[in-house]
């Protein structure tokens, strides 16, 4: 399967979002890939607000079902007023929707936003919750066991790769 170039997807995502954002729009990236993308979007869309970041580990619905807490927990950081804000949650790949559900729950513990949208680089199908991305430049249907992974190199270039189950 041909995996599209992440940098080209990012350009397309930026152009999809451009007519719909204002300088006051706030971006929240989901660790780790979502934060990389949100930082790039904020720059090219000339947004005024600093980018927020969320680690959804404390809100995951599979906590306490056998897996220990992740080792590399990150501190969520929401550097703007959530109350009344227009927010776009940014993630790299949309799959079951459970990560976004967790991110929404966490976000609402900071206040009541006026509006929340979702932006992702790619949708790989396999949704288990009624969640859709408003901004999404590519649909890449994958089988269970396959993973689409976003990486960032030393020059901060993004790339997507397909990982097959062992």
């Amino acid at each position: 399967m041909q995996i599209p170039d992440a940098e080209q997807l990012l350009v397309q995502l930026t152009e999809q979002m451009r007519p719909h954002v204002r300088p006051s729009t706030c971006l929240v990236g989901i660790y780790t890939g979502g934060v990389w993308i949100a930082e790039r979007l904020a720059m090219s869309l000339n947004l005024d607000q600093p980018v927020g970041s969320i680690d959804v580990s404390f809100y995951r619905d599979d906590y306490g079902r056998g897996a220990p807490l992740r080792r590399d927990l990150r501190r969520s950081n929401i550097p703007f007023e959530v109350e009344g804000a227009e927010i776009v949650i940014v993630d790299d790949v949309l799959y079951t929707g459970r990560t976004l559900r967790a991110a929404l729950n966490e976000l609402f513990d900071y206040g009541r936003p006026a509006r929340v949208d979702v932006a992702v680089l790619a949708d790989r199908g396999g949704r288990e919750l009624p969640i859709a991305a408003r901004f999404c430049p590519a649909e890449i249907p994958l089988a269970v066991g396959q993973t689409l992974q976003l990486t960032r190199d030393a020059e901060e270039r993004l790339s997507l790769s397909l990982i097959e189950a062992k």
């Binding site: 680690d55 404390f58 809100y59 906590y63 306490g64 807490l69 080792r71 590399d72 927990l73 990150r74 501190r75 969520s76 950081n77 959530v82 109350e83 729950n105 609402f108 513990d109 900071y110 206040g111």
Partner: peptide, 23 residues
């Protein structure tokens, strides 16, 4: 070390409007 590392992100909860996590 794992306990100390895990504690760090929990310090942020006290700064939120809703000081609660669902764990």
């Amino acid at each position: 070390e794992r306990i100390l590392d895990t504690a760090a992100p929990f310090t942020e909860v006290a700064e939120r409007e809703v000081k609660k996590l669902p764990l």
